[in-house]
Design a protein around this nucleic acid. Structure first.
Length: 273
DNA sequence: CATTTCACCTGGTGGC
DNA sequence: TGCCACCAGGTGAAAT
């Protein structure tokens, strides 16, 4: 489900609800594939610590934790396709596929729910390991020259390059398609063949779209919600994503769907070159 | 090395 | 109503 704007929205809403709160008890499910750190070790590390802050890096939610005032551990949550982090009252019935419950000193619960189990959870004790650092560049912070350099000499499709998290962190299928539409670039163009002007159009398109999507709370295509259960509204602004056969909002030509890098890819054959 | 394909999961939808 | 094929916001391992 979640790409940069959705993860940013979730991180902000979780931060607003749990900052300063202490974890009293941690309950983990037995689906081991979810846990990069063994669940018992995570529960052990979480219990007794306080949320100092929660923020986003790429598609990862990073919870900075402390036993006292200092940050001494991190809990890192990747939502995969269908993961949700929810802060609820404890009497709210458990959703199916709830894999983690953190009981907080305030009496509320932080819950991790993930039907497809593509999410990943990791605990890092900073006295043993370094802090989390994702590999890719932040699309909202990267400059023109650095952005262009990411794609230089690459023969793969520009859409596949946008999805590669080690190049840019946070862009997924929705925002790759939407930014390529806004920049007027076909998704199958070879990344290394884009002109300097096209690359700069793409960088600007990405910035504008990601910022607007964050303002609107992300895209709720089927089930995405933030920590308060609120849906986003950017899906109302989609120009191509999941609009196969519908008229292009700019020129009226039916939107086409193809496969690129194994992912459904949507574009306007008239507006994109 | 760079790039492509596929497996990992559940659930929703639409056709017959 | 049921059954089936196909699709879905992601990623990392294996193959090429």
């Amino acid at each position: 489900m979640p790409e940069l704007p959705e993860v940013e929205t979730v991180a902000r809403s979780v931060d607003a609800r749990v900052r300063g709160d202490r974890i009293v008890q941690a309950c983990f499910s037995s689906h081991r594939e979810l846990f990069k750190t063994p669940p018992a070790e995570q529960a052990n590390g979480l219990e007794g610590r306080r949320f100092i802050s929660v923020h986003r890096t790429g598609k990862h939610i990073v919870c900075e934790l402390g036993s006292g005032r200092q940050i001494d551990a991190q809990w890192i949550v990747h939502l995969g396709m269908t993961g949700r982090l929810l802060v609820t009252r404890p009497d709210v019935p458990l959703a199916p596929h709830t894999h983690v419950r953190l009981t907080l000193a305030s009496g509320r619960e932080l819950r991790f729910v993930d039907p497809r189990r593509f999410g990943r959870l990791e605990f890092r004790n900073l006295s043993c390991v370094s802090g989390f650092a994702g590999p890719g560049a932040e699309p909202l912070a990267i400059g023109r020259g650095e952005f262009a350099a990411l794609f230089r000499g690459r023969r793969l499709a520009i859409k596949a390059a946008l999805l590669n998290q080690t190049l840019l962190a946070g862009v997924g299928n929705i925002y790759a398609d939407e930014s390529l539409f806004r920049a007027g670039i076909r998704p199958r163009r070879r990344a290394g063949r884009l002109t300097r002007a096209e690359l700069e159009r793409l960088r600007q398109a990405l910035r504008q779209i990601l910022r607007q999507a964050i303002r609107l709370g992300g895209s709720s295509v089927s089930d995405y919600v933030d920590a308060d259960g609120e849906r986003g509204f950017f899906q109302l602004k989609h120009c191509v994503y999941l609009r196969t056969g519908e008229p292009c909002r700019r020129c009226g030509t039916p939107i086409r769907r193809i496969l690129v890098a194994g992912r459904g890819t949507h574009f306007c054959p008239r507006c994109q070159h």
